[in-house]
């Protein structure tokens, strides 16, 4: 259970100006739930994700994971960024190893092989990032985030830089991994259809500073068809609430 209460984040820039990105955010996310955060640019959705993963510290409120406050990055929370962020000088194996450095070498190797198998990249274990396509690189990033078997996986617009065909494939793949591994998944996305197809719940953030505008439950069985009437209806409804004016 991830429990976010009254969360606020204010950034101070050097010149004494402040910018509040998030204010008064309350959100409870159950185990194994898939929640998408959608909203227009600058509504604080990425900020929220960075707070949950412990990269930034909130200026108000708190985040609890299984009852314990989140104070910094932990192996229990995996993070995938918009870009794969692989070290160009490290092979696929060594990039995944970055998440495992505190474990014994043999345990590292076993888990890396396992994770690469799961994302379908076992054959590319010793390839360098420049030899990978965009979709493959993002799979390596997912493997790196999942190799610790975190209870929460955070994804910050992970497929936005990919072509639409690769994006669909990776969305399906992600759901597959989720079914197998049983983590909680929080996804930031611009793509409302992606949010509806993947999530149990879509959270709409709005405004400056960002607040939760509404939450939409998606009560559809998986696998979901992107063209299903209900999916399209929810998509229209959410887009209407985004305040795109």
């Amino acid at each position: 259970m991830l429990d976010i209460s009254q969360l606020s984040k204010t950034f101070a820039d050097g010149g004494g100006l402040t910018h509040t990105a998030l204010e008064g955010v309350d959100l409870r996310i159950g185990d194994r739930e898939i929640v998408s955060l959608v909203g227009t640019s600058g509504c604080g959705k990425s900020t929220l994700l960075r707070l949950v993963c412990g990269l930034d510290q909130p200026t108000g409120g708190d985040i609890r994971l299984e009852g314990r406050p989140v104070t910094g990055p932990s192996p229990n929370v995996g993070m995938v960024f918009q870009e794969p962020r692989l070290m160009p000088w490290l092979s696929v194996t060594e990039n995944v190893r970055l998440a495992l450095l505190d474990l014994a070498r043999r345990e590292q190797d076993r888990r890396i092989a396992d994770a690469l198998e799961k994302v379908g990249l076992a054959d590319f274990a010793s390839a360098l990032p420049r030899q990978l396509s965009g979709g493959m690189a993002q799979r390596v990033a997912i493997a790196r985030a999942l190799v610790r078997q975190p209870s929460v996986l955070l994804l910050d617009e992970p497929f936005s830089a990919l072509d639409s065909f690769t994006r669909l494939k990776l969305q399906d793949h992600l759901v597959e991994l989720w079914e197998r591994e049983g983590f909680t998944l929080i996804l930031v996305t611009h793509d409302v259809e992606e949010a509806v197809v993947l999530s149990d719940r879509v959270v709409v953030l709005r405004g400056h500073p960002g607040r939760i505008h509404r939450e939409v439950d998606v009560d559809q069985p998986r696998p979901r068809s992107r063209t299903a009437v209900e999916v399209q209806r929810l998509k229209e409804e959410i887009i209407a609430s985004l305040d795109l004016s």
Partner: peptide
């Protein structure tokens, strides 16, 4: 940041 997320010393 990747290093921080992964707890690198």
């Amino acid at each position: 940041e990747v290093a921080r997320v992964n707890g690198l010393g």
